[in-house]
Design a protein around this nucleic acid. Sequence first.
DNA 1: TAACACTGTGTAATAATATAACATTAATAT
DNA 2: ATATTAATGTTATATTATTACACAGTGTTA
Lengths: 130, 130
Amino acid sequence: MHKEHTLTKNQQIIFDLIDKSSEPLKAYSILFNVQKKGIKAPLQVYRALDKLVEIGKIHKIESRNAFIACHNSSCQVAKATAFSICEICEKVTEISSAGLSKYLANFKDKDGMKYSKYNLEFFGLCKKCR
Amino acid sequence: MHKEHTLTKNQQIIFDLIDKSSEPLKAYSILFNVQKKGIKAPLQVYRALDKLVEIGKIHKIESRNAFIACHNSSCQVAKATAFSICEICEKVTEISSAGLSKYLANFKDKDGMKYSKYNLEFFGLCKKCR
DNA sequence: TAACACTGTGTAATAATATAACATTAATAT
DNA sequence: ATATTAATGTTATATTATTACACAGTGTTA
Ligand SMILES: [Zn+2]
Ligand SMILES: [Zn+2]
Ligand SMILES: [Zn+2]
Ligand SMILES: [Zn+2]
């Protein structure tokens, strides 16, 4: 469960937009869509995005420079994320697998180092596109 | 072992630069460094980078928008990559673990889907920065 | 109270990253 | 030879992200 954060006005507007989107949204597409709500500048968007990522309400899909809402209630560590990305339709799904997260959290590199933060992006074809 | 590709002039210049760098290089830093060799425009750099990524000679570190040479001779599938990234000094190391790549290649999502392409970035502190 | 720290906001300007469009040249295949 | 593909050179532009500065709200604390 996510720690409860009271979102500010800008954060709430931008989170709502991302949360109800069926696909990852890019920063300037978000900007375009919230201009009618008074958010006029890129920085206002990026500041809200930064905060939302920090508190785990959204995640950034690094390979796409886009953002999706976290729908994974067990995503306790906001910084340990895994996604599947369809290379045709660009559908992105957050992977919620206890086995995977356990494996990665326990993975040790050759220096014996463990990592609690990671981002994993799988690429392939989604059900519809196969 | 990588399939042998004969690099073109621009590709070779840019690969050499990345290969001898101790840290990931960004596209415009590459551009700056190869201008004396006649590569003048961003597009010339991006085209070479795209090709080098495609043939597995280099990898893109997505979270950093930077490129490193592949030093992993067992990196047969150029598109299945794992890295550790130091959050202080930004040192990046390609992880070469048979166990990890086997686990990820065999991972099935809840639809039973397997993925042969993935990119995994671990974040933490390197030996020196711990 | 007043001073302070902290967080968020608004705005303008600019930096950094990446691609489109078009003309040309080199390499490869039949 | 000719067709095809891949790479190049160049200009312009699109996309993504940050710097800098002024200010407002909130809570702490001296
Ligand atoms: Zn999540
Ligand atoms: Zn799809
Ligand atoms: Zn590699
Ligand atoms: Zn370090």
